[in-house]
Amino acid sequence: MSSSIEPFVGFGLGMRPQHYPSFIAGEAPVDFVEIIAENFMVKGGRPLTVIDQVRARYPVAMHGVSMSIGSADGLKPDYMRHLKTLADRIDPIWISDHLCWTGVDGFNAHDLLPLPYTEEVLDLVCANITQAQDILDRPILLENASTYLTFAEDCLKEWEFLTEMCRRTGCYLLLDINNIYVSGTNHGFDPLPYLAGIPANSVRQIHLAGHTTGRSGLLIDTHDQPVPDPVWTLYEAACALFGPAATMIERDDNIPPLDDLLAEMDQARRLATSLEQVAA
């Protein structure tokens, strides 16, 4: 197993069905695309034709939502087998999922559920990551999920948990800047110390997205809005701390025309590039 992932620096988009034709034709001016892995973990048909055509045009990052790396009963062999099959088919630049759990005892909530940040959970998550990396024969990236509650037994900050997780397993991070902002607002922490606590050499990818305010007053990670100003500001801070990292706009709902997303992606490119020039 390769023990490291070389940085891939570029700007991309999450590929959504409304925009498949542009990606199939290679018309979208992006450096890479990110796919939702589960959408292509199928037996046959059009999804596999689409991903083969897109892969011929672009580097592809596989982003999953169902690994459930924090489940107390471990990984699902059937899921991991399908994930490996897709990875073997498309040779992605990397495979990512979320620091979360989605179910236990065979139940699957199909949601990114929060984990207590304790030593017990850290041990379990690290064991599951090691197993996943062995199965996939490569290091993986894990993304910080938005959360709407914390646990009474929490004894680690989220960034402390992420840092130790990377140190123990050799995994990397997909930092979702919007999710940091959402969780920070919901739980009353300052996102800047969070970013400062993250080891720069662990960050391989950044997500930028939008959110909405729910009826409860909590910010909800809907990914259905343009990237808002506070997230751009945090992205600027992340670029200054981490240097160049693959960055993409992640839009999951209320999908706008492709040009709108490309404009947001170009905004990220300009911002990151200008900071790079200042640093040089």
């Binding site: 909530a109 207590p116 709407y148 509650l149 914390t150 646990f151 929490d154 909590l218």
Partner: peptide, 21 residues
């Protein structure tokens, strides 16, 4: 008992999201 004292409205978010999905 396992969640933080101010976290009950967060539980409702997950409860709702499960059905909505």
């Amino acid at each position: 008992p396992a969640i933080a004292v101010d976290a009950h409205r967060g539980l409702a978010v997950y409860h709702h999201a499960f059905r909505a999905t």
